[in-house]
Amino acid sequence: MPLQTLPLPPSELGESPFWHPKEKSLYWCDIQGQAVHAWHPDSGTHRQWHMPCEPGCCAPATGGRLVIGLRNGFYLLDTAKDGDDPTALTCLALLPADQHDTAVLRLNDGRCDTAGRFWAGSVITPRTAPHAALWCLQAEATSATGYRVRHMAGDNFTANGLAFSPDNRTMYWSNTPEHRIDRFDFDVSTGEITNRQQWVTFGRKVDGQPYGGRPDGAAVDMEGNYWVAMYEGACVLQLSPAGKVLQRIAVPVQCPTMVCFGGDDLRTLYITSARAGRPQEEREALVTAGALFSIEVGVQGLPVNFFRC
Results as ranks from 00 to 15, higher is better:
Leu134Lys: 01
Ile181Leu: 12
Gln197Pro: 09
Asn160Leu: 05
Gly73Leu: 08
Thr201Val: 11
Gly212Met: 15
Leu134Gly: 04
Gly161Lys: 03
Gly146Met: 09
Arg214Lys: 12
Arg169Asn: 11
Ala103Lys: 10
Phe157Gly: 10
Asp182Arg: 03
Asp109Ser: 00
Asp216Cys: 10
Arg150Thr: 13
Phe118Ile: 03
Asp82Glu: 11
Phe74Met: 13
Phe118Leu: 00
Asp185Glu: 10
Phe118His: 04
Thr125Gly: 07
Asp185Phe: 01
Asp187Phe: 04
Phe164Ala: 00
Thr194Lys: 09
Pro130Asn: 15
Ala103Gln: 12
Pro96Val: 09
Arg71Gly: 01
Ala129Thr: 05
Leu95Pro: 11
Arg148Leu: 12
Pro96Thr: 10
Pro166Met: 02
Asp84Gly: 08
Asp109Glu: 12
Asp113Arg: 02
Thr87Ala: 14
Gln209Asn: 14
Asn108Arg: 11
Thr79Gln: 00
Asn160Tyr: 05
Asp98Thr: 11
Phe118Ala: 03
Ala163Trp: 04
Glu192Asn: 12
Thr201Met: 10
Ser174Val: 04
Thr79Gly: 02
Asn156Trp: 06
Phe186Asp: 00
Asp113Met: 04
Thr190Trp: 00
Pro210Phe: 11
Asp167Ile: 03
Arg106Ala: 03
Gln99Leu: 14
Ala115Val: 06
Arg196Pro: 04
Asp216Thr: 07
His151Ser: 09
Asp98Trp: 06
Asp167Lys: 09
Val123Phe: 07
Thr145Pro: 06
Asp78Lys: 03
Pro215Asp: 10
Gly116His: 06
Arg148Ile: 05
Asp185Arg: 01
Arg180Asp: 12
Pro166Leu: 05
Gly121His: 03
Gly73His: 05
Asn195Lys: 10
Ala132Tyr: 04
Met152Leu: 15
Ser143Ile: 05
Ser143Trp: 00
Asp113Thr: 01
Trp199Arg: 02
Pro126Phe: 09
Ala97Cys: 07
Asp187Asn: 10
Asp101Pro: 06
Asn160Pro: 07
Phe186Gln: 00
Met171Leu: 10
Tyr147Gly: 13
Trp173Asp: 08
Gln209Ile: 14
Asp113Trp: 01
Arg214Thr: 15
Glu178Asp: 15
Gln138Val: 10
Thr102Asn: 09
Gly146Arg: 11
Asp85Lys: 00
Trp173Ile: 04
Ile193Leu: 01
Phe74Thr: 07
Ser165Pro: 08
Glu140Asn: 10
Ala163Gln: 02
Gly116Asp: 03
His179Trp: 09
Pro166Ala: 05
Gly154Gln: 01
Ser174Asp: 15
Gly73Ile: 07
Ala80Gly: 08
Thr90Ala: 09
Tyr172Pro: 14
Lys205Ser: 15
Glu192Ser: 10
Ala141Pro: 01
Asp98Ile: 02
Leu70Gln: 00
Thr201Pro: 08
Pro130Val: 12
Phe202Asn: 04
Phe157Pro: 06
Pro210Trp: 13
Val188Thr: 14
Phe184Gln: 05
Asp216Lys: 09
Thr142Ala: 15
Leu89Phe: 04
